[in-house]
Amino acid sequence: MRRLLLCLLPLAFLVNGCTTGYDAFSDVSSAKTRFSDTKPQDFGSDHPQRHAIHGIDISKWQGDIDWRAVKASGVAFVFIKATEGKDRIDPRFTEYWNEASTAGLLHAPYHFFYFCSTADEQADWFIRNVPKDAMALPPVVDVEWNPGSPTCRTRPAPEVVRTEIKRFMDRLQAYYGKRPIIYTSVDFHRQNLVGYFKDYHFWVRSVAKHPKEIYADRTWAFWQYTSTGLVPGIKGPTDINVFAGSEQNWHNWVAAVQKQGNS
């Protein structure tokens, strides 16, 4: 039965979304990476190095990047901040996007969602600034509370939150041909998302405990396990993430989402 599950997992996952766990059935092995962490967390037997595929997420704060060194360190993918709200774009987005492409690193853009702007205003802004023909991986919507924001600290009711997020993602999927990934934090997920969006891939932040301990009833596709990583080619701390499945799961998933974009 286990062998059958291993064979069926990639297809089931690609067709049905995150309804089946990657790491529950996949053979994972220690990743061959050259990056480290200034404040490593002890995750016990479920440590991130069990996973073969690692990646980073970046914004303007990473500054100048040596992309060849990044790729050589074992980074397989990168999430790049593109836009925020209805009128902000990361000033290094285009530069990072082009350089990641040149280095041969798979990359996806992410949007920081503001609850002081409508979903349509934000979708219009994202679509205006992110090239359709360069969408190798699905776009990401970053949904979390932002108490330090100087312009938007509002916290709508959960029903409003879910409606706005869904509208934004529907717009992006219709335009780019790929179902967006949802990035979220523990508190935001607990207050707004538990039990919802089960047919979407989730990218979760969990830097103190394994996601299975703090994300109720949620199967995750990507896990952001540290914000204090040291990655060759980048000065200063960097967020590091893992993909939940095996290397073969990863290749299957990438092939499937790229095909979606070309259909």
Rank of each mutant, 00 (worst) to 15 (best):
K209P: 03
R179P: 00
G261I: 09
A174C: 06
D142V: 06
E213N: 10
F243C: 03
D66S: 07
L4E: 08
V141Q: 02
F126G: 11
H201D: 09
V242S: 10
K71D: 09
R50W: 06
L172Y: 03
Y114L: 11
K71W: 09
W125P: 09
I53L: 05
Y200V: 01
R162W: 01
I65F: 09
H201Q: 11
G74T: 03
I182F: 02
E213Y: 08
Q62T: 15
R68I: 12
A72V: 10
V257Q: 14
V160P: 00
H51N: 13
G236M: 13
A103I: 12
A69P: 01
V194E: 08
P232H: 08
R190G: 04
R190S: 12
C18H: 06
T219K: 10
P150T: 00
Q258R: 15
D199Q: 10
R3Y: 00
L105T: 07
K212H: 05
P180Q: 03
W61A: 13
T19D: 06
W67I: 15
V231F: 02
F25A: 13
I165N: 00
Y114W: 13
L193C: 07
D87M: 14
C18Q: 11
Q62V: 15
K198G: 06
T228G: 00
A134I: 15
P237K: 04
A108Y: 00
L8R: 04
D170N: 08
A108E: 01
V75S: 11
R162M: 01
K166W: 00
G195N: 13
Q41A: 10
R2D: 10
A82E: 07
V257K: 12
M1E: 00
N98V: 15
G195T: 12
P147L: 11
N146M: 13
R2K: 14
V254E: 06
R162T: 03
K132P: 15
C7F: 05
R162G: 01
L105G: 04
F112E: 04
R68H: 12
D57M: 11
S101M: 13
Q258D: 15
G229L: 04
L8Q: 04
P10Y: 02
V254P: 02
Y114V: 05
V254A: 01
K86Q: 14
P40D: 14
S30D: 14
T38F: 07
T118H: 07
M1D: 00
F243L: 02
P139R: 03
R179A: 00
Y22P: 12
T238P: 07
Y175S: 12
D217G: 05
P109W: 06
N249S: 10
V254H: 03
K178D: 05
L106T: 09
V28A: 03
W67N: 15
